[in-house]
Write a protein that binds this DNA or RNA. Sequence first.
DNA 1: CCCATCCTTGCACGTTTGTTCATCCAGGTT
DNA 2: AACCTGGATGAACAAACGTGCAAGGATGGG
Lengths: 314, 314
Amino acid sequence: MQREQDVLTAASMYYLQDMTMEAIAKHLHTSRSTVSRLVKRARETGVVEITLRPPQGRAPGLGQQITARYGIDAWVVPVPDVTSQIDRLDQVSMTAARLLSTWFDSEMVLGVAWGTTLAAVAQHLTRKPTRGSAVVQLNGAANTRTSGVHYAGDLIAAFADAYGAHAHYFPVPAFFDYAETRSAMWRERSISRVLDVQRRADVALFSVGAISGGLPSHVYSAGYLEPGDIETLDAEGVVGDVCTVFLRADGTYSDIALNDRATGPTPAELRRIPQRVCVVAGDNKVAPLHAALRAGVVTHLVIDEVTARALVER
Amino acid sequence: MQREQDVLTAASMYYLQDMTMEAIAKHLHTSRSTVSRLVKRARETGVVEITLRPPQGRAPGLGQQITARYGIDAWVVPVPDVTSQIDRLDQVSMTAARLLSTWFDSEMVLGVAWGTTLAAVAQHLTRKPTRGSAVVQLNGAANTRTSGVHYAGDLIAAFADAYGAHAHYFPVPAFFDYAETRSAMWRERSISRVLDVQRRADVALFSVGAISGGLPSHVYSAGYLEPGDIETLDAEGVVGDVCTVFLRADGTYSDIALNDRATGPTPAELRRIPQRVCVVAGDNKVAPLHAALRAGVVTHLVIDEVTARALVER
DNA sequence: CCCATCCTTGCACGTTTGTTCATCCAGGTT
DNA sequence: AACCTGGATGAACAAACGTGCAAGGATGGG
């Protein structure tokens, strides 16, 4: 295909030689418009990669405050204070998608949770061709009540597609109805193979679920839980979840009944993954995020400015 | 400095969130112009890094032909056929500078030769902050007849400055008048320290010198050699040089009298550096480039399209 | 305290870029 | 063969961008 070659040529002349698109068009014997499209395609297909490197450690911005307090890498996404929750989610997820593509590379395994936030990230993924990499679903979601782009399978497929990675699905419900079923399934070879891949993950990508307020968290609204379950959670002091594992405000999670039936990795298991990226947008997520930080499951945080401020002022 | 923070914010909003400069200006309470300048500054200071990755191995372009024939990584810089030698040098050196900043990083040592081509590259360097890195001059050039930006010392300083690297100068002439002086100097601790750094280099950057035609090569025009020397070189079948070591068309270089007095690393020594980047622009360099390729001193070639075509058609 | 100098800012302008739309072409279908 | 369909193309327009310029503000030396 001559097209691929032209994409590379146009990108090289535009980004490496600072030529104007008009000049490039003349060289390629085509129109400016086409060159504009070639360059766009170069960005979209990952021929061009744009990386941001925060100047080392200084600057007492919000990000540094969070870094200092929690010992994690924080990326604060600037958004106007007035931005709606939806717009904030959009900005944060786009930023997270771009950052992720600078972190993920060949021969790596990416573990992905699912939910509203992750679906938003998936929409903004930039392509980056890699080899020998894989994407693995971190927690179950097979359920008849969800479908479309929010369906976990499509979400995993979107990540795998963007990176040319192998996809590993996790065909179990978000929560089992009986803990014994989980133990039984975990022994099945088809399932334990996926669990093995999860354990080999180099990067985990997830958000936190809030029990209440703001945009509804899929875990609570998608019909996985019965009304009785939610009351029980409240009574146990649960403030939110990470990968379908519920946490109390202090980051603990043992002796919460539902967790025995959950399918996602516990914080202890999650912590074995070296890089753990948490994407957060929305005020109502401050409490569960704080719990997640206490549980030590986050190494890299991508968060909108407003929520970040709420976090440090807490 | 609030400025650094703003540069990062603007870059993030512009490159990661695809916001328009006008919107960013509103958020930062400043004008579009300032945002434009902030973004520019982000590029110039290395906060933003733009990388091109050629789609793996396919596409039968000129680059692939060279790669296939010589087993090296070739980057062909597209230039109109009509471009003057000077413009070609400009395009190639800009491309080389940008590529180099994607290859070089913290804790690395960069060996740099000098000459017209390298001076051109130095002019286009993009900043990239690194730590623990060093730039070392590969061959001598101390000489009263050169000065200004072409002076080797300034050249090394420009590279070191761009990367925040430590600079190691090599205060010897390009050629000694007596081979014994060289042996004597090589034993001096101040000199052998530099030679040690050279041997630790991870990346070497150099061009090839042509004996005749086109833009004059510094080695021949700057007064390092006597008229008699040049006649002798001709008689010995020399077609050019790499780091002041002269090569015959077949890539051999032993028994060439001048080489005993030269200060640059021989091809054998050069080959110990893992990545060896050769920057070439200008038709008259085809012959010496071919010799350099035969000598196996090149692993990465940055070359303009016209010269590349001349090379493969050779 | 004043002045010279350097650096920064916003405006205005011209240039460069993204995108819509009508058109065209290739490939496959009836 | 005629027809449809999806994708590519260039013209034209509107949006976005870069930069020279003059004004404003800080800095440091007298």
